[in-house]
Amino acid sequence: MEELGKRAMAGDIRAASRLIRNIEDDIPETNMAIRHIFPHTGKAHVVGITGSPGAGKSTITDQLIFTMRQREKTVGVLAVDPTSPFTGGALLGDRIRMLRHAEDKGVFVRSLATRGAMGGLSKAVGDGIHVLDVMGKDIILVETVGVGQQEVDIINHAHTVIVVLVPGMGDEVQAIKAGLMEIADIFVINKADRDGARKLYKETLNMLNSGHFPNGWRPPILMLESSLEPHSFAESVEKLCDKIDEHYKHLVENRQLQERAIRKVITEMNDALRSAILEPVLNELAATGEFDSMVKKLVEKETDPYTLAEEVSRKYMSK
């Protein structure tokens, strides 16, 4: 496993993609590889792209790759799609929008499925970012799935978060509900040629006007023309790229990069503790059938979850 880490650092694509696979599959020995690469991480600028499904995240990602390559930066992409809760399978369809970069050695695109595991995806994304980072990618774009808690989790891993909104989808309401408005560093109103774009712009602006920005960064709002008008779309994505650079510069100049780094390691520590402490216990409880019998006791109201948890912790935890 450590070998995989070394090879990934040396730029071996197969090793890197295999390592990400092992992280996703949660192969225990993968930790060895992460141990090896961890000291070398933290160089890339990690950009999260979030927004509801159908907002055009992949198309924007594709054009961002193009623009960043023109600016001679290497790019890594993690694109997350949902796992079907019924079958455990997944259609990973983001990559299809980014195929024009398939032969560019400076671009590495990897699709991930949410797999529905508790905290699992966050860990896979976090470690996946490390792999792309040590491969030497200058920019890492993380495209989120578009629904659920994970949207907000992106803040724990990204330096810059882009929230993509689309007119006429009730996006602003959804976004506020999901807490996306608070995590945005840049707002993008995509498909701005559609009806309702001005209205959405105004609403977002009003919301920003009532907010305060202790870090000195007021999130800008960018309007993206339909991707079907290639030239104007390309131009507006250039502007988006400028804003991304500007935000990173702001983080560096105001020593806020450190805050983001702290946020990431706290998350990673939490995830690591969970997988080192909680998961083995849960696995054993499941394997011995204890978990099922505890569930039964609870259903019968013989005891309560807190009492059971204390019993379990007394059994497994010795200081």
């Binding site: 079907s84 079958t87 699709s111």
Partner: peptide, 8 residues
């Protein structure tokens, strides 16, 4: 997908 595979 319905057979439980991850499909790109």
């Amino acid at each position: 997908r319905d057979a439980g595979f991850e499909v790109i």
